[in-house]
Computed example of a mutant assay.
Amino acid sequence: MNQYKVKKGPLQRFKMTLGVLALIIVAACSKVDGNGMLAKRAGDQDVIRVVVTTGMIADLVQEVGGDEVNVVALMRPGVDPHLFKASQGDIQKLDEADVIFYGGLHLEGKMTEILKKLERHKYTVPVSKHIDEALLRSGADINGTQFDPHIWFDVKLWISAAGTVRDTLAEYDPEHAELYRQNAEAYIEQLNTLDAEIKEKINEIPESGRVLVTAHDAFGYFGDAYGMKVMGLQGISTAAEYGSKDVSKLRDYLVENKIKAVFVESSIPPKAMEAVIAGAKEKGHLVKIGGELYSDSMGEPGSDADTYIKMVRHNVNTIVEALK
């Protein structure tokens, strides 16, 4: 498997240390209760200020929180969370937040250390927090110590994330706890419908053709949940480098198994997959790009992938149309 090959120089380590120290100092100066947690929602506060990392989490929190939350996502559509670096503006947003939600499982890469520090001083919660580790895929390409963070590709796991958001908001703002429960229940019903819909759509692909080849290994949960073999050129994190051997190995697999389509991702440049396609062509096998999938980021506002449910439907329809 691929290994991380990121080297930190003295300057980079110094900058990261300063960022973490700044957050700790700000949090320490904030009003905290007896348990070291920031004070809960004040009665005269209009809405809860929620800061999240990714668009998928922003959409989830908005569905559960409704009008009681003002949600700000640090990462714009098309941004790769594995490589994201927080700016001073992002640090300020985290400081001003009442509640912070993030993916966890090392999805946020270098931001993980900062987020874990914040957990000590304010409501900072990974949405993956209550998922049984037995249901998580191994992230062996990170020295075997992490789990695959792409939990949103199994809708059942995303339902667990919805429960975490519901319970966190209810704890922070008990006055509206029943509202959060009702919103979560309604949204979870939509997610259960989506889960059944995906299974039905995947059945349109002949079993022998249920092979999903993408730029990085983001769709493992999707494959496990919906019966597809999944292969990625890179590992579960785009920070894991790939080399010519990886390209050759994937090219040979496409040729030997007569795979007719591969997919690019909205948050990753298509250059690597184009090299695989060109290599297969040299060996006499034509492979097409089956379409663009949304993996680590949702679509732009107004697109057919600007909510979690719409994003999943876009991906499934794109996959099925290319492979059936």
Rank of each mutant, 00 (worst) to 15 (best):
L94Y: 00
G290T: 02
G163C: 09
M37H: 07
K271I: 08
G36N: 05
S295Y: 05
Y294S: 03
P77S: 08
R181V: 14
Y187R: 04
D141I: 07
D44A: 10
A170P: 08
V69A: 00
M311I: 08
D59G: 00
K85L: 09
S138P: 05
K5E: 13
N203T: 15
A42I: 05
E171A: 14
Q45K: 12
C29M: 10
M1R: 13
G65Q: 02
K129H: 13
E171W: 08
K110V: 15
G65M: 00
V165N: 03
G36L: 09
P149S: 04
V51H: 04
M273D: 06
A240I: 13
A162Y: 02
N192R: 11
W152D: 04
D224I: 15
V69I: 10
L60E: 04
M37D: 09
G36A: 06
M16Q: 04
G55I: 09
T17Q: 02
T54F: 03
A186S: 08
K117F: 00
A86I: 07
S30R: 15
E292N: 13
S138V: 11
L11N: 13
F14T: 01
N183K: 01
T168L: 01
Y180S: 00
L83R: 10
M75P: 03
Y172G: 03
A196G: 10
S30K: 14
A218T: 05
A170W: 03
I277N: 03
T112P: 02
I205P: 04
K260Y: 08
M37P: 07
K288H: 13
V50H: 00
E241I: 14
V316W: 01
T307M: 06
D304A: 14
D67H: 13
D44I: 09
K260L: 02
P10F: 01
R120E: 09
E256T: 14
V47W: 10
L107S: 03
K122E: 09
P10S: 00
K283Y: 11
G284L: 08
E321M: 06
Y102E: 05
H150R: 03
T53L: 02
I151S: 02
A86P: 04
H150K: 01
A134C: 06
P269I: 09
V264M: 09
S266F: 10
N315I: 10
V32S: 12
M37N: 12
I198H: 00
Y308P: 07
E256N: 12
L105W: 07
Y172I: 06
A186D: 15
R313F: 12
K199G: 13
A275P: 09
P77E: 10
N317R: 08
G65A: 01
K258N: 15
A278L: 14
